[in-house]
């Protein structure tokens, strides 16, 4: 394996080029495989495409670069505390972006830490929402008949379908 490779270039689904350092790429299994491919082939001109749009890929790479030093070496408690604060700032975005872009990307790229963080952030944001807000975000239609709604209400008197 050539040790001179420090970063790899990938294409987003929109066709933009991104550079990601080797240590950061290690946070994702698929990226790691790509990395090995790049290192093993002597003259590989082909730039791998990642099925994530540019806007999301920027965020994913930002997360990887931030978390890479800790993931690769382990860190002290104060670092962990600092990283937690950074995560909160990092996840300050629209719930739709988290659900449809960050979560899907984390799932696709097998990034456990980001996936867990995004799930928790989405759950925290959804906690206070009404049923109709949830339906709107997830593009879900109310498919209960009025009898079924009545039955659910009987079981859980507090339930609201709005």
């Amino acid at each position: 394996m050539s040790s001179s490779v420090e970063a790899i270039t990938v294409l987003s689904s929109d066709g933009d080029e991104f550079k990601i350092t080797v240590s950061a790429a290690k946070l994702s299994k698929p990226l790691n495989w790509m990395l090995e491919d790049v290192c093993f082939s002597d003259d590989c001109d082909e730039v791998p495409t990642i099925e994530v749009n540019s806007k999301t890929l920027v965020k994913v790479i930002e997360y990887c670069e931030k978390h890479a030093p800790r993931a690769n070496s382990g860190a002290s408690d104060s670092d962990a505390e600092e990283l937690k604060k950074w995560d909160i700032e990092f996840m300050k975005m629209d719930v739709k972006d988290i659900l449809f872009h960050i979560l899907m990307a984390a799932n696709y790229l097998h990034m456990e830490g980001l996936y867990d963080l995004a799930c928790q952030t989405a759950a925290d944001l959804m906690k206070g929402m009404t049923v109709s807000q949830i339906r709107k975000i997830f593009h879900i239609k109310n498919d209960f008949s009025s009898e079924e709604q009545e039955q659910l209400r009987r079981q859980h008197p507090g339930c609201s379908f709005d």
Binding site: C119, Q120, A123, D124, M126, K127, V131, I134, R135, F138, I140, K141, N142, D143, F144, Q149, L152, H156, G158, C159, S160, F161
Partner: peptide, 14 residues
């Protein structure tokens, strides 16, 4: 990850 109160409510989503 949601509290029970939200889960009971979100049964009504679909």
């Amino acid at each position: 990850r949601l509290p029970v109160k939200s889960l009971i409510q979100f049964q009504c989503v679909s």
